[in-house]
Amino acid sequence: MTALREKQGDDDVLTAGGLVNLNGAAVRFDASGVLHWPEERLLVVADLHFEKGSSHGVRGRFVPPYDTRATLRALAEVIGRLRPERVIALGDSFHDGDAEARLAPADLEALSALVGSVDWTWVAGNHDPSPPAGLGGRPVAEIVIGPLVFRHEPRPGRALGEVAGHLHPAAKVGRTRSVRRRAFVCDGSRCLLPAFGAYTGGLNVMDAAFKGLFERSRLIAWMLSDGRVYPVRSAEFLPD
C-alpha cells in the first residue's frame, strides 16, 4: 500500500493539499467515505440505508438492529470534524419506505438533531423516492452547484461533473494477497461515492454496471482503509 501513495505526485487529477480536481471543483475524498468540498463548506454522503438491518426481520433474519445507530454515530463524527454548512444526502438514505417508522426513538431524535444543525438536502433515491416528512431538510430530485451536479443514480455514458452514489463502488487489488475495500471512483469528470451505511456492501468496479461510465485511463479508485485513503489506478484492479 505504501507504493500506492507514492503515485499521488504524478497524477493530473490531483491538486495541492490532497484536493482532487473534479470537473474544476477542488474536492477532498475523506477517509470516512464522505466527499468534502471545502470551498463551498459542503459535505456529500451517499447511500446511508438507515434501517437496512431491521428490513431483514420480515424474512426472519434477525441481524442486529444497531446499524442506524452506528451509521448516525459515524456521520455525526465527520460532521463534527469537518464542520460543513451544507450536507447533501445522495439518495437511498432510508432502506425502504417503511424505514422511518422503524427508527428507534433515540435514533430518530439523533437524526433530527443532525439534520437541524446544518442546511440539509435529501436527494431522492430508488429506495426512498419520496423523502421522509417529519425530519426537516429539503427534498430534491437532483441539485446543481457550480460545475457539479448531484444525483443518486449515475446517468448512462459520460456525464461531466456528476457526483452520484447508488452503485456502492468497491475495489480489489493486490498481488499475493488481495484486499477489497469501499472506494470513491473518479476519472476527473465524474465521481461515484462509496456507500456510507453500516450494513452496505460494495460492488466491484470491474462489474458490468460501471461499464462506459468512466474514461479508464484516468480512472482512479480511492480505497478506504483504516482511516486512510489509498488511490489506486485502474490497471491494478482485480475482479472478484
Partner: peptide
C-alpha cells in the same frame, strides 16, 4: 446480487 442484499456477517459482528 452485486450490491449484496444480504448483510455480511463481518459487518454484523462489528456492529454487534
Amino acid at each position: 446480487t452485486g450490491r449484496q442484499v444480504t448483510v455480511s456477517t463481518d459487518l454484523i459482528y462489528d456492529v454487534l
